[in-house]
């Protein structure tokens, strides 16, 4: 039984990582109507920013903050310079998906000559082991879980108790009505890109820290797990993404223990397919992925 207890421990870490990524992704989609397929590439870019800071001998926890800032700035600029102009031009949802995929391809290949093809990893001491019954975790893993819980509580507080959060929810529900009510939707959307970009950057560094090593192409895997969690929970629903992250994190780690770690993403994909067949709107959403009228 102890292999499954260990896997459960890894599942806790894994769901913490996925939750940060998935909440950022789903908020981008829910509020700005943008399925940002470059999300995984922004994650991996931020992971590399943290890597270079870490390589200069600075602790990864500082690198993590830098990664979050980088992700925020990068996502903000991406929206301002590419996505928003295309959206203003009246490009369809489908056109925007193609745009974001093209952007994703460009980021990956601009990065490639800079960072190289070889996989790298952070040099950070994993810290001492902590035992909770059969579950054994390192101090770093405990820190990741704590960080994720803090971020989730922060997002909850932001959405429920602040004016900005209220404005975000209003913009997500009906942008035209929100603007007519005097909410500066443009500024709200800018804030959304900054906040979700910071989550994206943070998630990238945390995901890279949690895996043994990473390369540029890890970005696609990051995107798939975040997507799976977001769609499972109901796209555009931050709380749904948290639930989705818990399920995907646990199931992928347990399957890795029972079957083979190479197929983690395949298991996430299997869950995605099941959701799309059985409940396309996701766990929480009323409409979500279901075809909207018109």
């Amino acid at each position: 039984m102890s292999i499954f207890a260990a896997a459960f421990g890894f599942g806790l870490v894994s769901m913490s990582v996925i939750a940060i990524a998935a909440v950022g992704f789903t908020m981008q989609f829910g509020i700005t109507n943008m399925i940002n397929l470059a999300y995984g590439q922004v994650m991996i870019s931020s992971a590399y920013v943290a890597y270079y800071i870490n390589r200069a001998g600075i602790t990864i926890w500082v690198g993590m903050i830098a990664g979050a800032f980088f992700g925020a700035a990068f996502s903000f600029l991406l929206n301002r310079l590419v996505y928003a102009p295309f959206q203003r031009k009246g490009t369809s949802y489908l056109g925007m998906v193609i745009v974001s995929l093209a952007v994703s391809l460009m980021i990956a290949n601009l990065l490639l000559p800079i960072v190289g093809y070889f996989s790298v990893s952070y040099s950070e001491h994993a810290g001492s082991l902590v035992r909770l019954g059969d579950i054994v975790l390192t101090n770093n893993q405990i820190a990741i879980i704590a960080l994720s819980v803090a971020v989730m509580l922060g997002i909850h507080a932001l959405l429920r108790y602040t004016r900005l959060g209220k404005a975000m929810r209003a913009t997500a529900a009906n942008p035209t009505l929100a603007r007519n009510c005097g909410i500066p939707t443009q500024r709200v959307i800018d804030m959304v890109w900054l906040i979700t970009g910071a989550l994206c950057g943070l998630a990238g560094v945390v995901a890279a820290l949690n895996s043994d090593s990473f390369v540029i192409s890890s970005g696609a895997g990051f995107l798939i797990t975040a997507l799976a969690a977001a769609v499972l929970g109901g796209a555009g629903q931050p709380y749904g993404a948290m639930i989705g992250a818990v399920i995907i994190g646990l199931v992928t780690e347990l399957s890795a223990a029972a079957w083979s770690p190479e197929y983690k993403e395949v298991v996430a994909f299997g869950i995605l397919v099941l959701v799309m067949v059985l409940r396309p709107q996701g766990l929480l959403a009323k409409r979500g992925a279901l075809a909207a009228a018109g």
Binding site: I35, L37, Y93, L94, M96, V97, I98, L101, L227, V231, A235, L272, M276, P280, A289, L290, A291, A292
Partner: peptide
């Protein structure tokens, strides 16, 4: 059942 942009990401 899926909306067209979901179809695109599902296929990707």
């Amino acid at each position: 059942k899926l909306r067209s942009d979901y179809q695109a990401i599902a296929l990707l």
